[in-house]
């Protein structure tokens, strides 16, 4: 895959940043508006799919290598488990304990503010990282099969 025409490349190099930004917005505001980690992560991956369609697979791999993506993937998952395990430190061994909400934000008027809901925005960020990286990996892997297939047919 060499990529598409110049028009598509130019437009998508503008649009990709907007899509990426929108994904970040969806992740960060997941706890007060519809959306969240999964939806935002999918949008993040979509921005890379756009690059992959417009510029070709090799360019995308230079941009975000497979190794880095798989490391981000693991980091996201580990971050999520770490947030869940931090609750153990607040007595009673409670898994997924919303320690920020209960210990630091309790009694404060935080509803509908960006910093509210305790650990939920943090979990959203972890999930967004995980979903974005792993969906990117899946799509990259699936597109990797294509050249060998077509070459087999030609032979």
């Amino acid at each position: 895959m060499k990529g598409m025409t110049l028009i598509v490349k130019t437009i998508s190099s503008w649009v990709k940043m907007l899509v990426f930004l929108f994904g970040i917005y969806i992740i960060l505001f997941g706890h007060i508006t519809p959306g969240g980690g999964f939806a935002g992560g999918v949008i993040l991956a979509c921005s890379y799919v756009l690059i992959m369609l417009a510029f070709g697979r090799d360019y995308t791999e230079e941009n975000l290598s497979l190794k880095l993506a798989s490391k981000l993937d693991c980091t996201g998952a580990l971050l999520f488990i770490a947030i869940a395990l931090v609750g153990f430190m607040y007595g009673g061994f409670s898994f997924f304990y919303n320690f920020i909400q209960q210990e630091y934000l309790a009694g404060k008027e935080t509803a509908f503010k960006l910093i509210s809901a305790g650990t939920i925005p943090l979990s959203n960020i972890a999930i967004g990282l995980k979903v974005g990286a792993s969906l990117f990996l899946v799509l990259l892997m699936l597109s990797a099969f294509r050249p060998s297939d077509s070459s087999e047919k030609e032979n």
């Binding site: 490391k71 693991c74 580990l78 488990i81 869940a84 395990l85 061994f93 997924f96």
Partner: peptide
């Protein structure tokens, strides 16, 4: 001492995501 039950899920899950980093 009561063992916190989520450890049975959290320990293998956490190690499963640490292992590919090597």
């Amino acid at each position: 001492m009561m063992i916190p039950l989520p450890l049975f899920v959290a320990v293998p899950l956490a190690v499963a995501f640490i292992v590919p980093l090597f």
